[in-house]
Structure formats: C-alpha cells, structure tokens
Computed example of a mutant assay.
Amino acid sequence: MGMDTGDGRVAPPLTGGERETLRAYLDFHRGTLAMKCAGLTDEQLRQRSSPPSTLTLLGLVRHLAEVERTWFRRVIDGEDVPLVWSPEGDYQAAYDTTGADRAEAFAVWEAEVEHARRIEREARSLDVTGYQPRWKAEVSLRLVMLHLIHEYARHNGHADLLREAIDGEVGA
C-alpha cells in the first residue's frame, strides 16, 4: 500500500505487483478528480471556466461515471446497461450539466467506481477479456485499467485548469 499524500489520496506503491500498481494508480486518479471538486458549490462545479470550452468539473464527473460504467460493466462484465445520461448512447450528453447537481453526479460516479472495483477484484486475472463494440475487438482487463488511468490523467489535467480558473486552487 502507498503512502498517504495528505490530501485524501493514497500514493501508488513504489514496488508493487502489476495488478496492485494498476489498481492503486486508478484509485489515485479517481481521488484526484474528487479532490479537484472538493469544497465547490453546485454552481461552481457547473461553471464553464475556460472559454470557449463548455467543459465543467461537474461534466467531467458525469463523463467519468459513464466511462467507468462502459468499460467495466458493459465491456468486461458484459452487462446490458444503457448509459446513465443518454439511453441513446450519446457520450457527449454527460457533459451537459443543465439541471445537474453534485449529489446526483457524485452518487452515480461513486456507484460506478464501486461496480468497477468489484468487477476488477472478482476477475481471475488481468487477462480476462470483454468485447468492446466500438473497436469491434476483445480487450483485456489490463488494457481497460490502463485506458481508465489514461482517461483520468487527461481529464484531471482539464480539472486542474478548471479549478484554478474557478478559485485559484492549484496542485495535484
């Protein structure tokens, strides 16, 4: 297990096995997103703080809930569940935070993270595969975890800029 970073996150281990390290990095990035949103009002979370972009912190939370749901539940677990915010499968719908609030977005995101953790824990190995229809290919749990780490890292960079523009808070 890694060291406490002092900001609510746990740093990944410096000498862990593959699965332990992937799990820890993914959780570290999940914690970073939560940290970037901490202490803000619903209005601030919906603030489009880097014009002309329409990206918001709340939109990122909603988007990453869909990403977790898609890759772990739909792809690896083979569940036939629709997207949360778009039964038609439009991934962009999560970014529209009109009428959205923190409680709903975070409840959905946290629930999807828990599903993802359960699916990963129950998988016999990182070599377990699921079908990704958009790619028309089988993908491994290993690839899914790496893809999610990449997705969070990229969006946490956005979150960092959005947060700084809202209240000047910086740091990862």
Rank of each mutant, 00 (worst) to 15 (best):
R118A: 11
L26P: 01
R142T: 04
R117T: 05
A105L: 02
T21R: 06
R19G: 08
P82E: 05
R74Y: 00
E18N: 05
A24H: 09
K136L: 12
L26Y: 00
E138A: 04
L162P: 08
S53R: 11
L141K: 07
D101C: 13
H158R: 06
E169S: 13
E114W: 08
L126C: 07
L14M: 12
E120N: 08
K36L: 01
R134D: 15
M35P: 04
V67S: 11
L45R: 02
G31T: 08
I166E: 01
V170R: 14
E79I: 04
A93P: 01
T70R: 14
F106S: 07
T129D: 04
E112W: 06
V144A: 08
L148A: 10
L57Y: 00
Q44C: 11
R23T: 15
L146R: 14
A137F: 00
R154E: 12
E110F: 06
R117K: 06
E66I: 07
T54R: 15
W85A: 03
H155L: 07
R9A: 06
A38F: 07
G171E: 01
G59H: 00
V84P: 01
D80A: 15
V10M: 04
A165S: 15
G6R: 11
L57R: 05
P87D: 13
H147L: 08
I119P: 04
E18Y: 05
H63M: 11
R48N: 04
D27Q: 13
L143K: 12
L64W: 09
R102M: 12
E122T: 13
H158N: 10
V128G: 04
L14W: 02
Q47D: 09
R163V: 03
A105E: 08
M1C: 05
L40P: 10
D42T: 13
D160L: 03
R73C: 13
V84L: 11
R62Y: 04
L143D: 12
L22C: 04
R19V: 02
G39W: 11
T54Y: 13
Q132M: 14
G89P: 00
A111N: 08
T98Q: 12
W85F: 15
A107T: 12
L55K: 08
I119G: 07
A116P: 05
A137L: 03
L22S: 10
A65M: 01
A38T: 00
A34D: 12
A103Y: 10
Y25T: 00
E164H: 14
L45E: 09
R74P: 02
T32Q: 01
H115C: 12
T56W: 02
T54M: 14
A111E: 11
W71P: 03
E104R: 13
P133L: 01
E18P: 06
R23F: 12
R9G: 01
S125W: 00
V75H: 07
P133H: 09
P52V: 03
A24R: 02
Y25L: 14
E20F: 09
W109E: 00
A153N: 11
R46L: 09
A153I: 01
M35W: 15
